[in-house]
C-alpha cells in the first residue's frame, strides 16, 4: 500500500503568525512557536513528523510562507 510522506518548510521572515495554517492542518503538525522574527511576529513552527503534504497550510497561508514537499512511499 502506498503511503504519503510530507514536509513543510516555513519561511520565518515572511510568517506573520496568523495561525490560519495551524487551524487547517489535519495532522496538527503546525503550532504557534515561541520565538519572534525580525518583524516582531511569533512565527509558526513544525511540531511533529506526521505531515502528509496536503498543502492545506500553504493554500491558506496569506503570505506564501510555507513550502510543501510530498513523496509517495511504497511499503
Amino acid at each position: 500500500m502506498a503511503k504519503v510522506k510530507g514536509d513543510v518548510i516555513i519561511d520565518i521572515d515572511v510568517c506573520k503568525g496568523c495561525l490560519l495554517c495551524v487551524d487547517v492542518c489535519p495532522t496538527k503538525t503546525l503550532a504557534p512557536g515561541t520565538k519572534v522574527n525580525q518583524k516582531g511576529y511569533i512565527y509558526v513552527v513544525k511540531v511533529n513528523d506526521d505531515c502528509t503534504g496536503c498543502t492545506n497550510c500553504s493554500t491558506i497561508c496569506p503570505d506564501a510562507a510555507i513550502t510543501v514537499y510530498r513523496e509517495k512511499i511504497n511499503k
Partner: peptide, 17 residues
C-alpha cells in the same frame, strides 16, 4: 526523515515566483 523527500520532484507548493 526520508532523504529524498526534499527533492524538486516532490515539491508540491512553493511561493509563486
Amino acid at each position: 526523515m526520508n532523504d529524498t523527500l526534499h527533492l524538486a520532484e516532490n515539491l508540491v507548493y512553493k511561493r509563486p515566483k
